[in-house]
């Protein structure tokens, strides 16, 4: 455990170098967010539009995207998948196979460090943005819901990492993993609720998507916050989320083991 804390602290120091970059990134990310919010305002402002769309008031809809932005800051993989694929391609990974350090835990520590710094940097522009949108923000439905949201966000971060890690490990087999990373990202973008709350979809499609791990990356934590998912459904959801985290973890371990067997240490 101690050595991974050390990795975490080195990761923190290394990522701090990019704090200006992160600030820039977070600020730029607010431009499309503002666009989405304006679009929804326009939809709610249409003549003949009701005050509620599928159970969402305008304030709840705006809050959906604002909370989503924060969950995303906590959980998004930035460069991790590209770096992992790069390590495999250039043979850098050999040193981890020879030393008493576990590559998955090593990358997880670096990911955690990256997210800590990013979230701290993103807080500044996001706070300014929130101040402007304050009238449109609704609080968490209850203290319990807030606690569940925090837990679900943490689990979402782990799930996100294991998925990205596994996709990056495909570099053991193919030369260029970027198409896989982008395909995975596209699926995740729509199926996790990044574009819109999943319960705006026809119910059958919503149900189908809930059977995949994707909603547990974003829609689920935000839904807890807004009270769209509550009571027994919330606890059941957390259980399912834990199941997906474990499944993704085991898959990551398995794929790594298979990959190493195939590995030929290019450049090492």
């Amino acid at each position: 455990m101690g050595k991974y804390l050390h990795v975490l602290s080195i990761g923190l120091q290394n990522t701090l170098v990019y704090r200006a970059n992160f600030l820039f990134r977070a600020a730029f990310g607010l431009i499309p967010l503002a666009g989405t919010l304006y679009l929804w305002r326009a939809i709610y402002g249409e003549p003949g539009a009701g005050a509620v769309i599928n159970g969402y008031t305008l304030a709840q809809m705006m809050s959906y995207y604002l909370v989503l932005t924060m969950v995303d800051a906590f959980t998004a993989v930035a460069e991790d998948d590209w770096q992992i694929a790069g390590d495999i391609k250039d043979g850098q990974i050999s040193q981890f196979l020879l030393k008493p350090i576990d590559y998955l835990q090593y990358r997880l520590s670096l990911y955690a460090a990256g997210r800590l710094i990013y979230t701290t940097c993103a807080l500044v522009p996001v706070a300014v943005f929130l101040a402007f949108q304050w009238s449109a923000v609704v609080g968490p439905v209850s203290v319990l819901a807030l606690g569940q949201t925090a837990l679900a966000t943490l689990l979402a971060g782990m799930l996100q990492f294991f998925i990205a890690y596994t996709v990056a490990l495909l570099a053991f087999w193919v030369l260029d993993v970027s198409t896989f990373i982008f395909t995975q990202f596209a699926l995740e973008y729509i199926a996790s609720g990044h574009l819109f709350p999943l319960d705006l979809l026809p119910p059958w499609l919503h149900q189908v998507l809930m059977g995949t791990p994707y909603p547990y990356l974003a829609y689920f934590p935000v839904g807890l916050y807004l009270g769209r998912i509550s009571g027994n459904a919330a606890w059941l959801g957390l259980g399912i989320q834990i199941f997906w985290v474990l499944a993704a973890y085991l898959l990551a371990r398995l794929v790594f083991r298979l990959g190493v067997r195939k590995y030929s240490a290019v450049g090492g």
Partner: peptide
């Protein structure tokens, strides 16, 4: 070929997004 498919996927995503929005409204602005 994979890159062409990935780009198609992203374009499809944009169309799907608008399809969902227009499932709840007749017009936007």
């Amino acid at each position: 070929l994979l890159w062409i498919v990935v780009e198609c996927l992203w374009f499809g995503l944009q169309l799907a997004y608008m399809a969902v929005l227009y499932g709840h409204t007749e017009s936007i602005a």
